[in-house]
């Protein structure tokens, strides 16, 4: 039950973030939508790795080394999400830098003022 609820939360965050990125006209608001969708993807990935009744993948006194395989949850999605969060900050920084460049070009953040690639 726990992973399903967390997964549903993540999916709802993805949908809300994508809706914001698709419908807003302000470039900064679109980037905010992307960051929300990014968080949602991370929640979904971590909830896939969760196994009920198990504990974090750290083999200290709470988890003896001998029965680690039956006591800890899947560590691989966690390593993946750790990477994804750090790269997500890099992507956000790039989007913000380009948004600033676009603002310098037109003195506006409204996406409908940028018509070069429109068809």
């Amino acid at each position: 039950m726990l992973p399903q609820i967390a997964m549903a939360t993540g999916f709802v965050l993805i949908l809300m973030g994508l809706y914001g990125a698709l419908t807003h006209r302000n470039i900064l608001r679109m980037i905010v939508g992307f960051t929300i969708a990014d968080t949602g993807v991370n929640v979904v990935l971590v909830s896939v790795g969760y196994l009920p009744g198990r504990t974090a993948p750290i083999l200290d006194s709470a988890v003896p080394v001998a029965d680690a395989a039956t006591r800890i949850i899947d560590p691989v999605p966690q390593a993946l999400v750790l990477t994804a969060i750090v790269i997500g900050l890099g992507v956000t920084a790039l989007m913000l830098a380009y948004a600033y460049r676009l603002f310098r070009a037109r003195h506006s953040l409204d996406i409908s003022n940028f018509t070069e690639l429109k068809w």
Binding site: I58, L59, V65, A68, I72, P75, L82
Partner: peptide, 14 residues
């Protein structure tokens, strides 16, 4: 989970 302690010596599997 099984081989991390012996192969790397780390407590934190992640």
């Amino acid at each position: 989970a099984v081989n991390t302690p012996a192969e790397t010596g780390a407590q934190n599997v992640v």
